[in-house]
């Protein structure tokens, strides 16, 4: 495992998953003894083909799914019924389709939804909403109807809906899917400016290369690789084995940042 951002010695990892097994209700095994530890402030890409179990893993990280066996810890605290509200506040999940994430009639209501449920006093809500929207460059959209925003704007507002909960970990499911190149660049800038731990489920290898120093490959429910992103992307045999592919002409040299 590559420690790119070394966490303070005493701080517990932001996320820790140990021997996580999950079987679908029909008995198929979705996750097969997954081990993963993500330090505070790390940015990690979770790569893998369709059906690898990436989204299923993400849904365990804030207790939407309950493991068949194994442990999930958030900031050192095990996910359980008792810790559920704290865990869901601490781990912000951004789903793939912003139309699923943005279910309220207005943007501001959507951004306020989490904080209101997590018991933030109503007096602090407007400020929270404003800061979260400002962080993704959408402060002017507070009063809008989500259907009037572009897809890229909706994606950014979707991120604001969890930022307003002030999470310590952001889990993004395919954040660049369906984005045009300009919206993709805007999103990269937004994500790069955030001061949180990030786990990003993606097929978009250049995006992972740009933002995440570390990459993990999940395939058929198991972790297959866990290393520095340039190293993972340079291993063409590994990529091919897990149906991952760099865009034509893309050279994953050392990151220049």
């Amino acid at each position: 495992m590559v420690d790119v951002v070394s966490p303070a010695a005493s701080a517990p990892p932001a996320l820790r998953v140990e021997e996580l097994v999950y079987d679908y209700p029909d008995g198929r095994r979705a996750l097969d003894s997954v081990d993963l530890e993500i330090g505070q402030g790390e940015r990690v890409a979770l790569l893998g083909p369709n059906g690898a179990g990436k989204t299923t893993l993400a849904l365990h990280l804030n207790g939407i799914l309950t493991p068949s066996s194994g442990v999930v810890e958030v900031g050192g605290e095990a996910v359980s019924n008792e810790s559920l509200a704290r865990v869901r506040q601490a781990v912000g999940l951004v789903f793939q389709d912003p139309d699923d994430q943005l279910f309220m009639p207005t943007v501001a209501q959507d951004v306020a939804f989490g904080p209101l449920n997590f018991g933030v006093p109503e007096g602090e809500i407007p400020d929270r909403v404003h800061r979260a929207l400002a962080a993704v460059g959408m402060a002017d959209a507070a009063d809008s109807y989500p259907g009037h925003l572009s897809f890229g704007q909706r994606r950014r507002v979707a991120i604001a809906t969890v930022l307003s909960c002030e999470p310590s970990v952001l889990v993004l499911d395919e954040p660049t899917s369906n984005l045009d190149p300009a919206a993709r660049r805007d999103l990269a800038e937004v994500l790069d400016s955030l001061d949180v731990t990030v786990l990003m489920v993606t097929h978009d290898l250049p995006f992972a290369w740009q933002l995440c120093p570390r990459s993990v490959i999940l395939d058929a429910g198991r972790i297959r690789a866990d290393a520095a992103t340039p190293e993972v992307l340079a291993d063409s045999a590994l990529l091919a084995q897990h149906r991952l592919e760099l865009p034509f002409g893309f050279d994953p040299g050392p990151r220049t940042q």
């Binding site: 679908y24 209700p25 979705a30 939407i64 799914l65």
Partner: peptide
């Protein structure tokens, strides 16, 4: 009833 759990699978 298991089918109901397809929700998140």
């Amino acid at each position: 009833p298991a089918a109901a759990e397809k929700v998140t699978a």
